[in-house]
């Protein structure tokens, strides 16, 4: 873990809010730097195949989720969670190796980009079907209950679009029935791909859904790191104390396309002028300076450090070999003796 050698992950006491804020900001900065580099490698062509999905603007919500979790907790990130992944403890190399399709990455070229994770370390690799990861988190928390593991929390990230799925409904209701320590962090960034809120749902506010499930709902300004740390942090704490599932709805604007293939021309210009259209990283930097929690020289140092970490991770990952179809283990079963056609290239292959 490249970055954790320099920034060890532990829980910081609530009393030391400025320290948490600084740590969160550094993860956001590292996430932004990582994603800008990934996008630049993608645009230069040839090195990254498949999609590139960025979390620009969403770093405050994401990092607040990752930083509120601790060892033994579960995190099911979605596509705009680079900051939260780093704060949760995913190595930068897991990101760059996966984007570059390296055989040595956690997905070994079998899956790519944001579909990475390490289930045994509590980090779930998302499938593309939205809402589908929530019940998996529920099951992990049910396992903890069976096993007598106490005080763990599971968090799942969602967008506004995922709240329209059947999987969302089934899993949030399941978590409520089982009173699981689940925190659902819904980022309403106004668009699901190109579909605006008014074609996605008809309730006044997504947080209103909480009452229907009998769980607590929290609203937060997703552009405000301090608010995200406080609200998501307290939701995680409530879940940890046995208060059951918590729904957090954060509001912001997606500042990039759905993926790098998308120019996001459909985003209504007036939204960009609204407070929800602010860039959470820029807002957090201004806040740091204004409160004298960091000076500009310090922030420049952090930026240089982020760039250096990212350059190292990318350079390393570029040197790693790609998967080789000739030596690939084409076996989808863990019980190898039950796999079909392993030694045949004929009809059973």
């Amino acid at each position: 873990m490249l970055q954790s050698a320099e920034m060890p992950r532990h829980t910081v006491k609530a009393s030391d809010f400025s320290e948490t804020y600084r740590r969160a900001f550094r993860w956001m900065l590292l996430a932004r730097t990582t994603e800008e580099k990934i996008a630049s490698v993608f645009r230069s062509g040839g090195k990254i195949t498949g999609g590139v999905f960025l979390g620009k603007g969403q770093e405050a919500i994401s990092v607040a989720t990752g930083i509120a979790l601790r060892n033994g907790d579960i995190f099911a990130p979605l596509i705009r969670d680079q900051a939260g992944r780093l704060a949760f403890g995913e190595s930068l190399l897991d990101c760059t190796l996966t984007y570059l399709g390296a055989r040595s990455g956690p997905m070994r070229g079998r899956d790519g980009n944001v579909h990475r994770g390490r289930p045994l370390e509590g980090l779930l690799p998302m499938i593309s079907h939205l809402g589908a990861m929530i019940s998996v988190v529920n099951g992990m928390l049910m396992a903890h209950r069976f096993q007598g593991k106490k005080n763990t929390v599971g968090a799942a990230s969602l967008g506004d679009g995922a709240t329209s799925t059947g999987a969302f409904h089934e899993s949030i209701n399941q978590a409520a029935v089982e009173n699981l320590p689940l925190v659902l962090v819904v980022t309403n960034n106004q668009y699901a791909y190109s579909t605006p809120n008014d074609r996605q749902f008809a309730c006044a506010d997504l947080v209103d859904k909480a009452i229907g499930y009998g769980i607590r709902g929290h609203s937060v300004d997703g552009t405000d790191l301090g608010a995200c740390l406080r609200v998501i942090g307290s939701a995680v704490e409530l879940a940890r104390q046995g208060e059951g599932p918590q729904l957090v709805v954060a509001t912001n604007l997606r500042l990039v396309g759905h993926g790098e293939h998308d120019d996001a021309h459909y985003i209504a210009p007036h939204l960009k002028e609204m407070p929800l259209g602010r860039d959470s990283l820029a807002v957090a930097e201004a806040e740091l300076l204004q409160n004298a929690w960091a000076d500009s020289e310090t922030i420049e140092g952090w930026t240089r450090d982020s760039i250096s970490q990212v350059e190292k991770a990318i350079a390393h990952s570029l040197r790693e070999p790609s998967p080789d179809p000739a030596t690939e283990d084409w076996c989808a079963l863990s019980s190898r003796h039950l796999a079909e056609g392993l030694s045949s290239n004929g009809s059973r292959g």
Binding site: V136, A167, E170, N173
Partner: peptide
Amino acid sequence: SEDAMVGSAIGASLQGM
């Protein structure tokens, strides 16, 4: 909730159940 039933079983299995 068949989707959530299976999804939760998957999660539990990842944690050793």
